[in-house]
């Protein structure tokens, strides 16, 4: 996601943190965040060219035109190095934080502030369908389209444009209004789904492979569909995809919590 998308996911997360988790998160945040996790959820995007190794961790490469996700097949970087992908990163940072908090005497000296910020960012990204898009079109980055009158690419439409158009059209250009609307849906129309979203098979702490499977399926059904190179995306595409984006932001927030 872009800045707004990560802010929404992390703002939703903060609403539902347990007392213990909120205490631990505030301890890990730098003073500059003033206790607000959402203020730093885009930090991994800002340093991805400084921490060059982190760039491959923002996405997973599904083989072209396949609409399912398999960790062993898809989680590797462009040099074929296994585990260096979005879901491998979520496993990794979940493990780092868990080890540190499960065993206070753990000998590992991970940077837990970075682990928290990477985990928060990547749990958001794995819910953006085109972050688990096709290798051949770089998750939609090389599919040039028009968004109304503006020339852009399909990945940018899903990272930013759908949210920006929603803010203008429905939320008075106010991100907190959009966040409140999504939170209202979490307590109303999605209230029966939340416990399913939160759950992981085998009682695992995180299950990013499942989140990625949902995303690549949505990429095939909604992101790529009716968005061929050179097409112009307008109200029909926007109004039918906005509910998908809002639900993915909600799921990302609830699951990160």
């Amino acid at each position: 996601w872009g800045k707004e998308g990560h802010y929404v996911v992390c703002k939703i997360t903060q609403e539902y943190l347990s007392e213990d988790a909120l205490f631990a998160v505030k301890q890990l945040l730098p003073d500059s965040a003033h206790g607000d996790l959402a203020a730093l959820c885009s930090w991994p995007d800002e340093i991805r060219f400084h921490y060059h190794w982190s760039s491959a961790l923002h996405y997973a490469d599904t083989p072209d035109f396949l609409c399912n996700y398999q960790y062993c097949r898809d989680c590797h970087d462009s040099y074929g190095r296994k585990h260096r992908c979005l879901t491998g990163a979520i496993h990794n940072y979940t493990m780092q934080l868990k080890l540190a908090y499960a065993d206070a005497s753990s000998k590992f000296n991970y940077n837990l502030t970075e682990a928290l910020l990477f985990l928060s960012h990547f749990v958001g990204d794995v819910h953006q369908p085109l972050h688990v898009g096709f290798t051949g079109d770089l998750g939609g980055n090389s599919i040039t389209v028009r968004w109304y009158r503006r020339k852009t690419n399909l990945h940018h439409v899903w990272d930013n444009m759908i949210i920006e158009s929603a803010l203008k059209m429905f939320y008075g250009s106010d991100l907190s209004t959009m966040i409140q609307a999504i939170q209202q849906n979490i307590t109303d129309i999605w209230s029966n789904d939340v416990s399913i979203w939160e759950h992981c098979a085998h009682n695992y702490t995180a299950c990013p492979d499942w989140y990625a499977s949902e995303s690549v399926s949505l990429a095939c059904k909604f992101a790529y569909r009716n968005a061929t190179p050179g097409s112009t995306l307008k109200d029909e595409y926007f109004l039918s995809r906005l509910p998908i984006v809002e639900k993915r932001l909600a799921q990302g927030g609830v699951r990160l919590t």
């Binding site: 988790a21 631990a24 989680c75 879901t87 979940t94 908090y101 695992y204 702490t205 990160l256």
Partner: peptide
């Protein structure tokens, strides 16, 4: 759910 589970000790971690 992930952060709440991490900062309370009870569950396993998804194996890669």
């Amino acid at each position: 759910a992930i952060l709440n589970r991490i900062f309370t000790s009870k569950t396993g971690i998804a194996q890669a």
